[in-house]
Design a protein around this nucleic acid. Structure first.
Length: 283
DNA sequence: GCCCAGGTATAAA
DNA sequence: TTTATACATGGG
């Protein structure tokens, strides 16, 4: 990965494609918003950020060399070459080539574990626009003020608030799940920090002790919040319709990048359903 | 109005 | 053990 300091901030030129829109709008995160000028704004680690695309790279505004090292290298997984990961998935599992080729420049973000857990609890039986709305109200109501908006409220904060007080979020039946997660994470019954490296099956079990966290939310937390790219075994992300479409896909064939493969499948299925703009596959 | 959404808890078979 | 249903809410 190359980068250079410019007057606006820092310009990064990653190894392999990096498309901001595809990365932020593929359903892995809920707090990045596109502005009219095509730039994206969001809040990461309690700090406002704005970025935009240029021909050969991506500009991170007001970014210092230290920010790049301490935040963005991890957050955007800049040490990984996602073109190479794509090739590995496609060659290990040719059945997935159509899905892998259906979108370009997605990177798996390394989000805050608690934010990912909480966000994907909210995501269950819900649609993306409404998920974003609930999360926005959650931050507006309980987050701390930052320069460009509100931070994502910590588990401690939400544990100290009752389920009753979550009513303004209009999260429905998920409100008590948020409370249970907040309590277990803040008092240590669930330790997210150790899940960066603990055996992944132990992590799964521990996450699923939270009410409202099943297989799917656990895998999403591990993939997006703890950057466990090997998360998401096939049987979790394959819906019935997809299972017939990708009948040749097995857990072994996608191996250590199952989570990344899943992201391509998710996009591909939305493409077939017309939920995202793009070329629809010919019959 | 109707269907459904990046699921899960709970009850019933 | 597997299968059915309720769940809160609102986007399309």
């Amino acid at each position: 990965m190359e980068w250079k300091k410019i007057s606006e901030g820092i310009k990064i030129i990653p190894d392999g494609a990096f498309d901001l829109k595809n990365t932020f709008d593929c359903g892995q995160c809920f707090r990045w918003n596109e502005r009219e000028d095509g730039s994206y704004e969001g809040i990461v680690r309690g700090r406002y950020a704005r970025l935009y695309c240029e021909r050969d790279g991506i500009i991170i505004e007001n970014c210092t060399e230290e920010d790049l090292e301490m935040i963005w290298t991890d957050y955007f997984d800049l040490g990984n070459d996602y073109d190479s990961i794509r090739r590995e998935i496609s060659s290990g599992c040719p059945e997935l080539s159509c899905a892998v080729d259906s979108i370009d420049g997605i990177r798996i973000l390394s989000q805050d574990p608690w934010e990912a857990l909480c966000s994907f609890i909210i995501s269950q039986n819900n649609n993306i626009p409404r998920i974003k709305g609930i999360i926005e109200r959650l931050c507006d109501t309980f987050g701390d003020d930052t320069e460009g908006g509100k931070s994502f409220p910590g588990a401690e904060k939400l544990a100290s608030v009752g389920t009753e007080e979550l009513a303004p979020l209009r999260a429905g039946f998920r409100a008590r799940y948020i409370t249970d997660a907040a309590r277990k994470v803040s008092d240590g019954r669930v330790c997210l920090e150790k899940m960066y490296s603990a055996p992944i099956d132990d992590c799964r079990r521990e996450l699923m002790t939270i009410t409202g966290v099943g297989q799917k939310v656990a895998e999403c937390t591990l993939l997006y919040g703890l950057h466990r790219l090997e998360a998401f075994p096939v049987d979790v992300w394959m819906k019935k319709a997809l299972a017939t479409h990708f009948s040749g896909v097995s857990a072994e064939s996608i191996g250590r990048y199952a989570g990344v493969a899943q992201q391509y499948i998710f996009h591909y299925s939305r493409l077939l359903e017309g939920a995202v703009p793009g070329r629809k596959k010919d019959q």
